[in-house]
Lab assay of single mutants.
Amino acid sequence: SDIKVHVGDITVELHNVSEEFARLVEEALRLGLNEEQAKEWAHKALH
């Protein structure tokens, strides 16, 4: 599904992702990663 993740003043739109993936992206953003890094990190975490 499509999910918007908000962290501080950052909003990341995720398309066709699981809630778990979105949660991992949100966690990575909170750790200070940028959007691209957060998506990559979440992807690796799920595989």
Score class of each variant (00 low, 15 high):
S1Q: 13
S1K: 15
S1Y: 11
S1R: 13
D2Y: 12
I3W: 08
I3D: 07
K4T: 15
K4P: 09
K4S: 13
K4C: 07
V5D: 07
V5L: 13
H6E: 14
H6P: 07
H6N: 13
V7F: 14
G8I: 04
G8F: 02
G8Y: 01
D9Y: 03
D9H: 11
I10C: 05
T11D: 07
T11Y: 10
T11E: 11
T11H: 09
T11G: 03
V12L: 07
V12Q: 04
E13W: 03
L14W: 02
L14T: 05
L14F: 03
L14K: 04
L14A: 04
H15R: 07
H15F: 06
H15N: 10
H15M: 09
N16M: 06
N16H: 11
N16W: 08
V17Q: 07
V17F: 05
V17L: 05
V17S: 09
V17D: 05
S18P: 06
S18G: 08
S18M: 07
S18D: 05
S18F: 07
E19S: 13
E19K: 13
E19V: 15
E19P: 11
E19L: 14
E20W: 14
E20V: 14
F21L: 03
F21G: 00
F21W: 08
F21I: 02
F21S: 00
A22L: 05
A22P: 01
A22W: 12
R23T: 07
R23S: 08
R23E: 04
R23P: 00
R23C: 05
R23D: 03
L24I: 03
L24E: 01
L24G: 02
L24M: 09
L24R: 08
V25M: 05
V25P: 00
V25F: 11
V25Y: 08
V25K: 02
E26D: 06
E26N: 07
E26S: 10
E26I: 13
E27S: 12
E27K: 14
E27I: 15
E27H: 15
L29S: 01
L29H: 02
R30Y: 10
R30P: 00
L31H: 10
L31E: 06
L31V: 05
G32N: 03
L33T: 01
L33W: 07
L33Y: 13
N34M: 04
N34G: 10
E35V: 14
E35H: 07
E36P: 06
E36L: 11
E36Y: 11
E36Q: 13
E36C: 08
E36K: 12
Q37L: 09
A38K: 00
A38P: 00
A38Y: 00
A38R: 00
A38F: 01
K39T: 05
K39E: 03
E40F: 12
W41P: 00
W41N: 02
W41A: 05
W41F: 13
A42W: 01
A42G: 01
A42Q: 00
H43P: 00
H43F: 15
H43E: 08
H43S: 10
K44D: 09
K44C: 10
K44W: 15
K44A: 13
A45I: 13
A45C: 08
A45T: 12
A45P: 00
L46M: 13
L46F: 11
L46K: 03
L46N: 03
L46Y: 12
L46T: 07
H47C: 13
